[in-house]
Design a protein around this nucleic acid. Structure first.
Lengths: 232, 232
DNA sequence: TGACAAATTAACCGCAAGGTACATAAAAAG
DNA sequence: CTTTTTATGTACCTTGCGGTTAATTTGTCA
């Protein structure tokens, strides 16, 4: 009971505490995670500020520590949540009954588009890479999440080779690497690329061209006698 | 350096100051920049610690502030320095007297290799992108640096089209985008990619394959009737 | 209805880390 | 040789921010 700094004069008159509130743990957690996701994606692990996060939630800083332990715990939860939500999108994709080349085209386009649509995810993955993926690696869900897309690509490869339309050195993992690299970079490096070269490739037009280019590159790498369409 | 708890004896005895030293501003600045580059590349702008940086230099924290003003100033200097040093590498590359396709192959390979060889640069660019390139944009050298590579590609395109070996929609900036995206991602996302899919693509073998794939992708996108070689 | 656990609030703490004050040696200027 | 400017060293200050303490309310279950 040491009010050491209250020498004498009414310093720190206690704010009136809220007299009533509802219990809603799930909503509180969600609220915190939503705000924290934005903060970590914007400023990174060390750059994000717990006090600021707390202010933007409808609850208090104490609750963050109550539910997530510490800053790192909060970050880990954010990471897992955003990884998981993206996996759902990937799993929803159904190309099993398209013919192989069309399936591959669709998968590539879908990957490209989902990257464009989820910049927050991209930023968090960038941040993870800065940290050498140490938090993703600690997670026991994240390392298992991306299997879905690889399986789909593997299926396409198998079918494509059987049909004689894909080169027999086509490899699902390499295919994913190619698609990912283009799709990821397109979002992750937009800022510096624009700084160096202007935004010509990042207008609506430019992005359409790039998207087609990516498809052509990927198909061109594995489809036998692939003929890219002309122009953008 | 806590002298506070040395109760009684020798409390706060000022450390004997170095009685003699040489002036060497240039070396001191270089020393600081070298250490700071490592620190910022490893931990980002907010994550890097000025005290730690100071300890690793052969000089004192005071000098960091003397020469660079504040943390942000130091970061900006680091950024400009690594950008500039990479530009020199690019400029040294001479492909003007190779035939167009070979020239393009060499440029692509060189870009891929230089990314692999300069992970610190990659990390700093990643960090800049997290910050929406605000510091790179403020710089008055960085935005002008990457012109060299584009000019080389433009020359190759012109010659290639004239010789009838390159598609007439081949575009230097797009070519650079393709090469960069693959080369950059290969380094920047190694950690998370490995976490998800194992390190098969990052062994010596795997990297050779990837490198060849990248060349094939780029050439395949612009060379008329390009025939990729088989296998890895 | 009252004990107990779970959820929430406001206030506080410690210290790490960015930044500064001040003294002084080395070199340059005059 | 004196003065001034540049470069350096040591100690220190301030506060932002991650994390805690302690009290209080809400809901549950004997």
């Amino acid at each position: 009971m040491e009010h050491r700094h209250m020498d004498g004069v009414q310093k720190n008159a206690p704010k009136k505490r809220k007299t009533t509130w509802k219990k809603d743990p799930a909503a509180v957690k969600e609220d915190i995670l939503t705000v924290a996701t934005e903060a970590f994606a914007a400023h990174g692990l060390s750059g994000a500020n717990i006090n600021e996060i707390a202010e933007k939630t409808s609850t208090s800083k104490r609750m963050i520590y109550y539910y997530f332990g510490d800053k790192e715990g909060l970050y880990r939860s954010v990471l897992e949540r955003v990884y998981s939500s993206l996996r759902e999108i990937e799993q929803a994709l159904n190309v099993a009954d398209l013919e192989p080349i069309m399936a591959l085209r669709r998968l590539t386009e879908a990957t490209f588009d989902s990257h464009v649509k989820n910049p927050q995810f991209i930023r968090l993955v960038m941040i993870e890479n800065i940290h050498n993926a140490e938090y993703a690696r600690k997670s026991d869900v994240i390392p298992t999440l991306n299997k879905a897309i690889i399986e789909k690509l593997a299926d396409v490869c198998t079918r494509g080779k059987a049909a004689g339309v894909l080169r027999d050195d086509a490899d699902p993992l390499e295919l994913h690497w190619m698609t990912s690299s283009a799709s990821f970079y397109n979002v992750s490096n937009k800022a510096t690329f624009t700084t160096s070269f202007g935004n010509r490739l990042f207008t609506e037009e430019g992005q359409k061209r790039i998207r087609n280019r990516v498809v052509d590159m990927v198909l061109g790498a594995v489809v036998i006698d692939y003929l890219p369409r002309k122009g953008g």
